[in-house]
Simulated scan of single mutants.
Amino acid sequence: MSASLDDPVPLFVPTRTAGAVDVACLQVGRRPDGVRVGIAFSRLELLREATGPRQDWVRMHEDELREQLAQLGVGVIQCDPVLVGPDVFAPAALLDHFA
Score class of each variant (00 low, 15 high):
Val35Pro: 01
Met60Gln: 15
Pro32Gly: 03
Val88Asp: 12
Arg36Tyr: 02
Glu62Asn: 09
Leu72Tyr: 03
Val28Ala: 11
Val37Lys: 06
Val9Arg: 15
Glu62His: 14
Gly29Leu: 07
Gly19Glu: 11
Glu45Phe: 09
Asp7Pro: 08
Val13Trp: 01
Leu11His: 05
Asp33Gln: 10
Gly19Asp: 07
Ala40Val: 08
Gly29Asp: 10
Pro32Ala: 02
Arg54Thr: 13
Gln71Cys: 11
Leu65Lys: 03
Glu64Gln: 02
Asp6Arg: 07
Ala50Ser: 15
Thr15Tyr: 02
Val84Gln: 02
Ile39Gly: 06
Arg66Ala: 12
Glu49Cys: 13
Phe89Gly: 02
Arg16Cys: 14
Glu49Phe: 13
Leu26Arg: 07
Leu46Tyr: 05
Gly38Ile: 08
Arg30Ile: 00
Ala18Ile: 11
Gly29Phe: 08
Ala90Arg: 10
Gly85Asp: 15
His61Lys: 05
Gln68His: 10
Thr17Trp: 00
Thr15Cys: 12
Leu5Glu: 11
Ala20Ser: 06
Val23Met: 01
Arg16Ala: 14
Gly75Pro: 01
Asp33Tyr: 05
Phe12Asp: 13
Phe41Ile: 08
Arg36Asp: 05
Gly73Cys: 03
Asp6Cys: 00
Cys79Ile: 15
Ala20Ile: 05
Gln71Leu: 15
Arg59Trp: 01
Asp22Gln: 07
Leu11Lys: 04
Cys25Gln: 06
Ala70Tyr: 03
Leu11Tyr: 11
Asp6Thr: 01
Trp57Glu: 05
Leu72Val: 08
Arg54Met: 14
Gln27Pro: 02
Pro81Leu: 03
Leu47Met: 15
Cys25Arg: 10
Pro53Cys: 04
Phe41Trp: 07
Val74Met: 06
Pro14Ala: 11
Val76Pro: 00
Arg66His: 12
His61Ser: 02
Glu45Gln: 13
Leu69Phe: 03
Leu5Val: 12
Ser42Trp: 09
Arg36Ser: 10
Val74Asp: 10
Ala20Val: 03
Leu11Asn: 03
Leu44Trp: 04
Leu69Cys: 04
Arg48Pro: 00
Asp22Pro: 02
Arg31Leu: 15
Pro32Trp: 00
Ile39Asp: 03
Ala70Gly: 08
Gln27His: 09
Pro86Arg: 11
Asp6Phe: 00
Arg48Cys: 00
Trp57Leu: 04
Pro86Val: 06
Val37Arg: 05
Leu65His: 04
His61Arg: 05
Val13Asn: 04
Gly19His: 11
Ala24Asn: 10
Leu65Gln: 07
Ile39Met: 01
Gly38Cys: 08
His61Gln: 06
Gly34Ile: 08
Gln78Ala: 13
Val13Ile: 13
Ala50Pro: 13
Leu83Ser: 12
Val13Pro: 04
Gly52Gln: 12
Gln71Tyr: 00
Gln27Arg: 14
Leu83Met: 12
Leu44Asn: 06
Arg31Val: 09
Ala24Met: 14
Arg30Cys: 01
Arg16Ser: 14
Asp87Ser: 14
Trp57Lys: 04
Pro32Cys: 00
Ala70Thr: 02
Gly85Thr: 15
Gly85Cys: 14
Asp87Phe: 12
Thr51Asp: 08
Asp56Arg: 08
Gly34Leu: 08
Phe89Pro: 00
Ala70Leu: 03
Ala50His: 14
Arg59Asp: 05
Gly19Lys: 08
Arg48His: 06
Arg36Met: 07
Pro14Val: 12
Gly29Cys: 07
Val23Arg: 02
Asp7His: 09
Val58Arg: 10
Asp22Asn: 11
Gly75Ser: 09
Thr51Gln: 13
Ala20Glu: 09
Gly52Ile: 15
Phe41Val: 05
